[in-house]
Design a protein around this nucleic acid. Sequence first.
DNA 1: ACCTAAACCTGGGCGC
DNA 2: TGCGCCCAGGTTTAGG
Length: 270
Amino acid sequence: MPELPEVETIRSQLEKYLVGHKIEKIDVRVAKIFASGKEKLVGGRVKSLRRFGKVLVIDLTNGYSFLIHLKLTGQVVFSSPKLPNKESSYTHVVFHLDKNANLFFNDSRKFGWIKVEKTAEVEAEPFVKKLGPEPLKNLTLKKFQEILASTRRPVKILLLDQEKLSGVGNIYANDALWEAKINPRRPANSLGLSEQSKLLGAIEEILKIGLKYQGASDQWYITAEGKKGRYQEHFLVYGRVGESCRRCGAKIRRVVVGGRGTFICANCQK
DNA sequence: ACCTAAACCTGGGCGC
DNA sequence: TGCGCCCAGGTTTAGG
């Protein structure tokens, strides 16, 4: 799922549901997902929720936090007497909360992880620490231009590199490049001024649209309320192989860039 | 520094 | 229906 709009949708919903709840017990059914430290969380109460790129952070009042990465198929779903129960055969970790509520971590492919850190040390955690600036937050045009100018690697690979900028994944990278009419294979340092600025604007715009539709439920993603997002109904180019370009009508092609499926209108994206 | 393929896993879709 | 193959919102690692 799990690009910036999907994780942010989960974060903001959990802020509403989870804050104030006490963690009474944690049931880890697949050890590799949550390898250690769960005892630090038991008895703690949820204080706040943060997000760094695609990483969700849940802070407790006892000085500890836990980080969740959903990778490709992870789900984080809140359940209470009022919401549908999304426990399934893919539920690998259950946080039992007070007031008959639960937080489920589901993950078909088991690539996701949960990790405990002291709250004060979350930003120094190795994965978080390496993250680059984030669109809609602290990615300025100047910084974006520096990042692009620093390499001749294909621009799409840069957009997906979390150490260069964080939060953008394959869906939003494809759609933003289409929106900006830039070919994903273009060397990053070959973009002109107006292209650089157009691309940053497109990234911000597409992420905002993703947020508006509560993310893309192309496959496994669901919100913390257990519902589907709707951005998949508005894909600009992602996944539209064989269909017509929304701008010029040419056929959308699938190519591979940096080992990832990449969708382009060869007519529009130069 | 950069590139690729493979690895971590499982399920869905498609062609035959 | 079944089987084999390819694909998948991410990231890391091994090898060149």
